[in-house]
Simulated assay, not measured.
Amino acid sequence: MSRGLTIGEFAQLTHLSVRTLRRYHESGLIEPASIDPVSGYRYYTSDQIPTAQVIHRLRQLDVPLSDVAKILATEDTEERADLVGGHLRRLEAQLDRTRAAVTSLHQLLRPDKDLLPVELRSAPPRTVAAVKGFVDHGEVLSWYAEAMAELDAAVTGLQSLGPPGGRYANELFTGGRGAVLVYRPVADPPIRGRVTPVNLPAAELAVAVHFGPHDDIDVTYGRLGTWVVEHALAVDGPVHETYLVGPRDDPDPRAWRTEIGWPVFRLAAG
Rank of each mutant, 00 (worst) to 15 (best):
F134A: 04
A145P: 00
R126T: 09
D152A: 13
G165V: 01
V118I: 07
H106G: 12
H137M: 14
Q94P: 06
Y168W: 13
R97N: 12
L108K: 07
K113C: 09
A100I: 03
V131F: 09
W143P: 04
G138S: 05
R99C: 11
V180A: 10
S142V: 11
A154V: 00
V155Y: 03
T174A: 10
V118T: 03
A130G: 05
D112T: 10
G157N: 02
T98F: 13
F173K: 01
D112R: 10
V118F: 05
N170K: 08
T156G: 07
G178R: 00
P124N: 08
V180S: 09
L151C: 01
A129V: 01
P125T: 07
R184E: 10
Q159A: 14
R97P: 06
A101V: 07
D96T: 09
P185L: 06
L158G: 00
R99Q: 13
G178Y: 00
L115N: 11
V128S: 03
S160V: 08
D112G: 09
V155R: 04
G133F: 02
V186Q: 03
L158M: 01
P124R: 06
Q107G: 14
L95A: 15
T127I: 08
P163F: 07
V135E: 04
D152M: 07
G166V: 02
S142T: 11
E146F: 07
A130L: 04
A153E: 15
F134P: 02
L181Y: 03
V140T: 00
P163T: 10
E150K: 02
V180D: 04
P124H: 07
L109A: 15
L116G: 05
V102E: 15
T98W: 08
G166T: 00
R184A: 12
P185G: 03
P125Q: 11
V155A: 04
V182D: 01
E119Y: 11
V128C: 05
L120C: 10
Y144N: 10
G162L: 05
V135Q: 02
G157M: 02
D136L: 12
A101E: 13
V186D: 04
V102G: 09
P124T: 05
G165I: 02
E171W: 03
L120V: 15
V182S: 03
Y144S: 13
G138F: 05
H106Y: 11
D152H: 06
P125I: 06
F134Y: 15
L95Q: 13
Q107T: 12
L161K: 04
S104A: 15
Q159M: 07
A123L: 14
D136R: 13
K132D: 15
S104Y: 03
R126P: 05
L108A: 15
S104Q: 13
E171L: 03
R177F: 04
G165A: 02
A147V: 00
W143S: 01
V102N: 10
V155T: 06
D96I: 06
K132W: 08
E171D: 12
L181I: 05
